[in-house]
Design a protein around this nucleic acid. Structure first.
Length: 485
RNA sequence: GCCCCCAUCGUCUAGAGGCCUAGGACGCCACCCUUUCAAGGUGGAGAUCAGGGGUUCGAAUCCCCUUGGGGGUACCA
C-alpha cells in the first residue's frame, strides 16, 4: 500500500481509567482508516486532568492497545522513562504546557480571548438564575468587556483569572465523514468558554485543538459524543490561524438498554475481556463490526489485515450499536479454532496457571500435555479461560462427583454401582486392553449389551465418576487423558 | 428546558429510487451427526423497513412533520 503523508489521524486517550472498550474501538477505527489510506497514526496522552490521571491507567491503556495489535506510528514511549517517537514531541499533554501557554498568549494578544475573574460563587449564582428563568445555562459575559483599568483593579485584589475564548456569533458547520453536513449555531454553545483554568492549567477543548494543530492532524475520528463540541474546536482552529481538520463522528457503543456504554451497566475494561480469555483477534473483529461492515456475505470473520484492506470510513453506520457479548463469544470461538497448535498452547498456558493460582487446580500441565489435549478441547472452548472448567478435572487430585449425577436417568443407585464395578473390571482387571481410546470402547459396549444397558447410560455413569461432570469431551479420549492409574 | 445526532428481524448489519416477495450473521427452534457437551451440516420462525404526509411512473432508499431513542449542555475528558 502506498503511503500518504497528508493523512494523519490520532487517538487521544485520557489516563483517568483503564482502557475502555469505546476507546479501543475509536482507536481501531482510526488505525483502520490510517492503514487503509497509508496515513500516519498518532497516539497522544491527554493527562491534564491531574487529579484523576494515574500512571497505572496509562500503562493499562498503552499495553491494552498493544495487546490488541493497535500500534501507533508516533507517540509517547512506553513507561515513564520511555522516549517519544515522532516529529512532534512530546506526546503527553502535561509536558506540552508551554505550548498551550504560548497559544493562550497569542489568543489574549489578539483579543480572541480574555481573562475572566468571575468566582465560582458568581458563576453558580448565574446558573441558578438562568435555571429559575428557564433559560439555557451560558456565561453571562461579565468579564468580556472589562477595561484595562478594571482588569488591573481585579489583579490588584489578587483575584485569579481564568481565560475565556470569545465565541463569535454565527453558524459553524462541517462536512462530517460519517454524517454529511452538520451545522450548529454558536448561540447554543453556552457563551464564551474557559480554555485555561484560573490555576493556569489548560482545558480539554483548548489542548485538543492546539495539539491537533501542532501535530498536523488531518482527520479527527472520534465518538459521536463530541459532535456538540466540534463547533468550539472549529472556532479555536480558526482563531489559532490553523486549517480545520476533517471530522468523522463514530456512532456510540451502547449498553443493552440503549444508553451510552458505561462501567455501571456493561463490562467496559479491555483488560477484563482479556482476563476472561477473549482473543485479541476476536475483540478487534467484533469491535470493527460495531458500526461498520464490509457489506459482503460470508465475510464475518476477518483479521486485522483483512479489516484494513476493506475498511471505508464513509460506510460507517450513523446509529449507535448495542454491545452483544454473545456474538463476541461466537467470534472468539471462531478465532480459537483458527489458531495453530503452538499458538493455542501459548495462549492457554496463562489461564491454566491462573486456575492453579486460584487453587482450582492441584497441578499444572506441561506444554506437551496441553498440546495432546487440543483436539479434545478446541471445538469446546468459548473462551481460553474455559479450559479450567472444561478439563480441569485432569489436574485435580480428587474428583468429587455429585451423587445425583452419578445415576443416569434410567438407572437406580444399585445399577449405577454395579455398572461402575463391572466397567472397572472390564477395563482394569485384565491386561486385555491397552489404554487407548479405540481399545477402551469395545469391551464397554459389549458389557452394556450383555447386561441389557443402554451404552449411553453406562458411559454417563463412568463419565461422572471419573470427571465429576456430565459434560466433557468424548469419554474414551477423556479416559486416556486421565490415565489408567 | 435548550441544542445536536439517530431510527431495517431480539442483536450486529446489507441496502446509494426499479435487482427487495427486504439479503447475511449472532441468537432462537427443529432435524442430521452423536456416549455427554461442543463443533459442523441442513431447514425454519423472525422486520407491514418507527408512524404519517409528500416528491416520483416507481420509495427501505429523496423531502417535511410526528413519535421514539441517544448524545451534549463544566474552571471533566
Amino acid at each position: 500500500m502506498s503511503t500518504n503523508p497528508a493523512i494523519r489521524v490520532r487517538i487521544a486517550p485520557s489516563p483517568t481509567g483503564p482502557l475502555h472498550i469505546g476507546t479501543a474501538r475509536t482507536a481501531l477505527f482510526n488505525l483502520l482508516h490510517a492503514r487503509h489510506v497509508g496515513g500516519t497514526f498518532v497516539l497522544r496522552l491527554e493527562d491534564t486532568d491531574v487529579a484523576r490521571s494515574t500512571e497505572a491507567h496509562e500503562r493499562d491503556i498503552l499495553e491494552g492497545l498493544h495487546w490488541l495489535g493497535i500500534t501507533w506510528d508516533e507517540g509517547p514511549g512506553v513507561g515513564a522513562g520511555g522516549d517519544d517517537v515522532g516529529p512532534y514531541p512530546p506526546y503527553r499533554q502535561m509536558q506540552r504546557l508551554p505550548t498551550y501557554a504560548e497559544a493562550a498568549r497569542r489568543l489574549l494578544e489578539a483579543d480572541r480571548a480574555y481573562p475572566c475573574y468571575c468566582t465560582p460563587d458568581e458563576l453558580e449564582a448565574d446558573r441558578r438564575a438562568q435555571e429559575a428563568a428557564k433559560e439555557a445555562p451560558r456565561y453571562v459575559g461579565r468579564c468580556a468587556s472589562l477595561t484595562p483599568g478594571e482588569r488591573a483593579a481585579r489583579e490588584a485584589e489578587g483575584r485569579p483569572a481564568a481565560i475565556r475564548f470569545r465565541v463569535r456569533p454565527g453558524i459553524v458547520g462541517w462536512d462530517d465523514l460519517v454524517r454529511d453536513r452538520v451545522e450548529i449555531d454558536t448561540a447554543n454553545l453556552g457563551g464564551d468558554f474557559v480554555i485555561v483554568r484560573s490555576d493556569g492549567t489548560p482545558l480539554y477543548h483548548f489542548t485538543v485543538v492546539v495539539d491537533d494543530a501542532a501535530m498536523a492532524v488531518s482527520h479527527v475520528i472520534r465518538g459521536e459524543d463530541h459532535i456538540s463540541n466540534t463547533p468550539k474546536h472549529i472556532l479555536l482552529f480558526e482563531a489559532l490561524g490553523h486549517g480545520v481538520p476533517v471530522f468523522g463522528h463514530l456512532p456510540l457503543i451502547l449498553n443493552p438498554d440503549g444508553t451510552k456504554m458505561s462501567k455501571r451497566k456493561s463490562q467496559t475494561a479491555v483488560a477484563d475481556y482479556r482476563a476472561q480469555g477473549f482473543l485479541r483477534e476476536a475483540l478487534v473483529n467484533y469491535l470493527a463490526f460495531l458500526g461498520w461492515s464490509p457489506g459482503v456475505e460470508g465475510e464475518d470473520v476477518l483479521s486485522l489485515d483483512e479489516l484494513i484492506e476493506r475498511f471505508d470510513i464513509t460506510k460507517v453506520q450513523k446509529g449507535g450499536a448495542k454491545f452483544d457479548r454473545t456474538r463476541l463469544e461466537w467470534l472468539n470461538g471462531q478465532w480459537i479454532r483458527r489458531l495453530d497448535d503452538e499458538d493455542l498452547v501459548d495462549r492457554l498456558r496463562p489461564f491454566v496457571l491462573a486456575g492453579h493460582e486460584r487453587g482450582e487446580l492441584d497441578r499444572v500441565p506441561g506444554d506437551d500435555e496441553l498440546r495432546t489435549l487440543l483436539p479434545l478441547v478446541r471445538d469446546r472452548l468459548p473462551t481460553l479461560a474455559a479450559i479450567v472448567e472444561l478439563v480441569g478435572f485432569l489436574w485435580v487430585d480428587e474428583v468429587r462427583p455429585d451423587p445425583a449425577d452419578l445415576v443416569p436417568k434410567r438407572w437406580d443407585a444399585a445399577t449405577a454401582r454395579e455398572g461402575l464395578r463391572a466397567a472397572r473390571e472390564a477395563l482394569l482387571a485384565h491386561d486385555a486392553v491397552t489404554w487407548e481410546a479405540d481399545e477402551l470402547e469395545p469391551p464397554l459396549r459389549a458389557l452394556a449389551e450383555t447386561r441389557g444397558w443402554k451404552a449411553g447410560d453406562l458411559f454417563m455413569a463412568i463419565r461422572v465418576a471419573v470427571t465429576g461432570r456430565t459434560a466433557t469431551p468424548p469419554l474414551f479420549d477423556t479416559l486416556v487423558a486421565v490415565g489408567r492409574e
